[in-house]
Design a protein around this nucleic acid. Structure first.
Lengths: 324, 324
DNA sequence: CTGTTAGCGCATTCAT
DNA sequence: ATGAATGCGCTAACAG
């Protein structure tokens, strides 16, 4: 019995032919170690919990793909839960995962600074890594949202745009949205431009209409900076519905770099994050901590490089306002 | 100890004040039942395995979302694995899930008729449901791919199209692709049209170029029927790159009904499947079988309704060929 | 190198 | 309605 256990866990500590014999019989009778018993005995499940807002935004599906890959490569399974950006669900998910005996968690939360879910994790002493979030008190894997947005504003300004609006998702539900807004404002103000043109489109169902309304105003913006790709895609749609050509009549940028943006026409101009890599690195941090038994610190946080995908949804401003 | 167990599992079988007392103390010391011990004892993990080709195609992300919802609603957790359409990975995933003590599995396989993974499941006596696949020997939740494709061909023919090409993903890696091709052929032949115009684009990287090549031929098709939405989106791109307008110069249809197709311009005309519902129903079948202890039969299979989303990527053929 | 033993935390008899 | 005892299948410590 102990020998069989060794064959599966410490194969070197058992004689080669004994091992072969055991393996042969195992194959024959279809035996393999029972995961629950193993977990009970070792107090480790080799399962990682994953908490994401939704799988319906490809940015998180891509990230989960990376998480799944990295976990699998390290011999871990994953147990994903979605929160739909709701705080209660965030806590619920963490509790269920905690009850599920996961060894650690990767999560994307609404706001790390105020998250009760994270408090629970701290108390439970469970290792965790935040993905996409960025906050001084937690180990995070993310990009520099502010910087990326400032850079984008600079690009648009260089193309001659002066009336630029930010189209943002629900600000309260996401620290990323807030950081991106901050970056937008900084970028605009540093050029002496008005940063107050911000449209929050909290509901998917009505987003296109609301953006359309903005675009039909007489003094409409010449460029839209969107806080994520899904909103950018809807903005492009809204522009078309309003009779505007993208990018000739209006420039539009996104944020996230979801794969499908590259196959659209016009190809989405956007800030790309390495979504799969964000997932992978998060898992790697977690696994390293688990393996080495070293606790995870905020100082372990990773800031990954973003980049700008040129795309086709941005162009120089159409009719430069005559200067005097 | 037994009382505490009852409080968590059979609350009615314990005195109300005893229960309250236990619960209070549990809260205080942060106690909750250990999942591994419970699984070991009951021989059920309350975890469902999920095997999908990839999360990078939104169709499966949407389905997984449905699976996660339904599982959560029934008190089950899910353990997803992706196969990237590879047979070895399919088997590997099933084996790992089997070793992981899952109570049942929802899977999307390449070909149910030949899948070794399914043989393993049969042998292991583990309940499972196939999603998207459709095969007489297994319990499946799917739509009628052949019919949907025939209907689509009819629509295009009604718009005056005669030279219609099928753009398909890797046929060998998916029974759906084969069924859809069959439906295309049947539809074309029933109208006396040439059904031999089929382009297989196995690799994402080169798909757009290959489709572009087809579109630059002198006798190019006036409509493309694509075997999934991702390919349809790439076809639209290829058409634009070839200088063709969609739908004025060429009509293009998809299959799957991924949400993002609705926000594109032109809005994707496509056959929509109820992706989240496919996931939900699959889980419901599984859970019912698990709960009632009744084995799952091929006769439990569900055929869900598809529908055609009108979209904007189809139009009457531009220059009808003069008839004599 | 292999076998014996104990106990991980729980659900489930069987008593009470 | 509650408590005491057993074993789910495994790993780890120890003995041989």
């Amino acid at each position: 019995m102990a020998t069989v256990s060794r064959v599966f866990n410490l194969p070197d500590k058992v004689n080669a032919e004994t091992r072969a014999h055991v393996l042969e019989i195992a194959k024959k009778i279809g035996y393999f170690p029972n995961a629950s018993a193993r977990s009970l005995r070792t107090q480790r499940s080799r399962v990682l919990g994953v908490v994401l807002p939704t799988l319906l935004n490809p940015v998180f599906a891509e990230c989960l793909d990376g998480i799944a890959q990295a976990a699998s490569a390290s011999g871990y399974a994953i147990l994903p839960m979605t929160t739909d950006y709701k705080l209660e669900q965030e806590e619920l998910a963490v509790n269920q995962l905690l009850a599920g005996n996961v060894d650690g968690m990767v999560l994307v939360v609404s706001n790390p600074a105020t998250s009760q879910a994270l408090v629970r994790l701290r108390v439970a002493q469970l290792p965790y890594v935040l993905a996409y979030n960025r906050q001084i008190d937690h180990p995070c894997v993310s990009v520099d949202n502010e910087l990326a947005m400032r850079e984008t504003v600079i690009r648009l300004v260089a193309l001659g745009h002066k009336r630029v609006a930010l189209i943002s998702g629900q600000l309260a539900a996401s620290d990323r949205a807030q950081q991106r807004k901050r970056g937008f404002s900084e970028g605009m103000r540093s050029h002496g431009l008005d940063d107050s043109n911000c449209l929050e489109v909290p509901f998917v169902e009505t987003a296109i209409q609301e953006i359309g309304k903005l675009l039909r105003q007489s003094n409409r913006p010449t460029a839209l900076v969107c806080s994520n790709d899904l909103i950018a895609i809807r903005s492009i749609r809204a522009a078309h519905l309003a009779g505007l050509r993208v990018p000739q009549d209006i420039s539009i940028t996104g944020f996230d770099g979801i794969a499908i943006g590259e196959d659209m026409t016009p190809m989405l101009s956007t800030i790309t994050q390495p979504n799969q890599v964000i997932g992978q690195r998060s898992v790697e941090l977690l696994v390293r901590s688990l393996t080495e038994g070293t606790p995870l610190n905020p100082s372990d946080s990773l800031l990954l490089a973003h980049s700008f995908r040129q795309g086709e949804s941005c162009a120089p401003v159409a009719i430069p306002v005559p200067h005097s």
